[in-house]
C-alpha cells in the first residue's frame, strides 16, 4: 500500500493516552509516518514548519482548542486545503456545524473504533487500500 506508507499524519490531543491510542490505531491501519502535538498552538507551529498530508485533532484542548487551531490553519495559505478531521467526545450537531463552517473535512466521535477511524479517514482522503 504505497499511499499509506507515504501518508504523513499529525495527531493533536492534550491527553497522552489518547494520542497513543490514535497512533496505535493508525499503525494498525497501516500508517507509518505519525507526528504529534499536545495542543493547537504546538500543532500550528508544526503545520507551518512542514505541512502534513492529514491532521487528526481533538476538539477540547487548553491553550488553543481544535476549532481555533482549524481556523488558524485555514488562514495560513499552505495549509488552507490540508485535510482536517476533528475528534470529539461531544460530536453534537452544534460542534459538527461549527467544524464544517470552519473548514473541517470530517468529525469522528470518541470513543472511536478502528473501523470508525478508518472510515472517517477514507471519507476524506479516499480508500486506504
Amino acid at each position: 500500500m504505497p499511499f499509506l506508507r507515504h501518508l504523513r499524519v499529525l495527531v493533536v490531543d492534550d491527553t497522552n493516552t489518547s494520542r497513543m491510542l490514535v497512533s496505535s490505531t493508525l499503525q494498525e491501519i497501516g500508517v507509518l509516518h505519525i507526528d504529534f502535538a499536545r495542543d493547537g498552538r504546538q500543532a500550528l507551529d508544526k503545520v507551518m514548519a512542514d505541512a502534513p498530508h492529514l491532521v487528526i485533532s481533538d476538539f477540547n484542548m487548553p491553550n488553543m482548542d481544535g476549532i481555533e487551531f482549524l481556523e488558524a490553519m485555514r488562514a495560513y495559505g499552505p495549509s488552507s486545503k490540508t485535510p482536517f478531521i476533528m475528534l470529539s467526545g461531544k460530536a453534537d450537531r452544534d460542534l459538527i456545524q461549527t467544524a464544517a463552517r470552519c473548514g473541517a473535512n470530517n468529525v469522528i466521535k470518541k470513543p472511536f473504533t478502528r473501523q470508525s477511524l478508518r472510515a472517517g479517514i477514507e471519507a476524506v482522503v479516499g480508500r486506504l487500500q
Binding site: 491510542l21 487548553p62 461531544k90 470513543p111
Partner: peptide, 21 residues
C-alpha cells in the same frame, strides 16, 4: 476490536477532565 475497551475508558476519563477544564 480488542482495543475498544481502552478507548472507551479513556473517553470517560477525558469527558471528566474536559468538564473540569
Amino acid at each position: 476490536d480488542p482495543r475498544h475497551a481502552e478507548r472507551f475508558g479513556v473517553h470517560l476519563m477525558e469527558v471528566l477532565i474536559n468538564g473540569l477544564m
